[in-house]
Write a protein that binds this DNA or RNA. Structure first.
Lengths: 154, 154
DNA sequence: TTTTTGGTTCAGAAAGTTATGAACTAATAA
DNA sequence: TTATTAGTTCATAACTTTCTGAACCAAAAA
């Protein structure tokens, strides 16, 4: 595969990005590798070879990534190897999911507001403002995504 | 302080929400406590008492939370205790920051696209679409936030 | 049939994170 | 002056995550 230094650097940076999202290091590096690889796929063997990690670490990571719909594999006739590639079609959906995760706190805030005895307090008013903000985003974000798709069909 | 079972449950759920964001358990529980407390503040002593963790764990967490502008404290004349409370005014800014973190991958994708030899490939076209999507969101999200503020001033 | 290839599984090692408890500081009170 | 209060710091204990290496399995090749 013979990756350039620049590509190796990008793999590590993508790795760190995913680590910050709470995913395990190897997962992020596999995403990085599949981003910079040309063509954009790699076999199991290439993955653990290039990333210099054990087969088992790669096996565990790929199982996880398939469950999360991050990667898929194709096979070729007369070749038992699996060719893993990123599921880029789901990428935008994943971004949406990440937004939804942020907005998840809305339900908890709702429950907190219900418990408050004094709903006129400064604190509670601010809380209600945040709740409304989250509600607003939850409604508007899907529209924004539609708007993006619309710009492409022109 | 004498928290109801419901409040204790909410504290734990807020805790788990923050754990998923990659913050340490105690940090999330402190946010939870400061959300359900009435009035919405607590002393250092109340925090480690209610959460049943050590003083040092609370000290470390509060130092971190102050650096991240999550909490602040006020004092009262003739009382050496600090009264910690959530900085709700920054909450919406924090949500924005979380969005920005998601969009951060845009720069990496840009660099990946530059490296690609065949920019007409299916993979590269999808990558460019994602890049444009992230660019679109980075432009539109601030406008959406303005729109929310505008709805309030009517 | 035996060997090779392409992976999976799992016990435990290594590394990283989080919490504790004891010792400490600095300010106030007695 | 000594004691108490409010909180910090740090070594290390406890726990969790991540990775490795060895053993394993199933399919194909020799």
């Amino acid at each position: 595969m013979n990756l350039s230094e620049k590509k190796k650097e990008i793999i590590e940076r993508v790795g760190v990005y995913y680590e910050h999202k709470g995913l395990q290091p190897v997962v992020g590096r596999i995403v990085g590798l599949l981003l910079v690889a040309e063509p954009a796929e790699a076999t199991f063997e290439e993955i653990y070879g290039e990333l210099q990690v054990s087969k088992s670490a790669v096996s565990t990571a790929l199982t996880f990534m398939q469950a999360k719909e991050m990667v898929e594999y194709t096979t070729k006739p007369g070749d038992r190897k699996r060719y893993f590639k990123l599921r880029l079609n789901e990428w935008k959906t994943n971004i949406q999911k990440q937004f939804d995760d942020i907005l998840d706190i809305e339900n908890l805030i709702k429950e907190v507001v219900v418990l408050k005895e004094n709903r006129q307090s400064d604190f509670c008013c601010k809380l209600i403002d945040i709740k409304n903000f989250l509600l607003f985003l939850r409604k508007e974000l899907p529209l924004l995504l539609d708007k993006f798709e619309a710009t492409k069909n022109k």
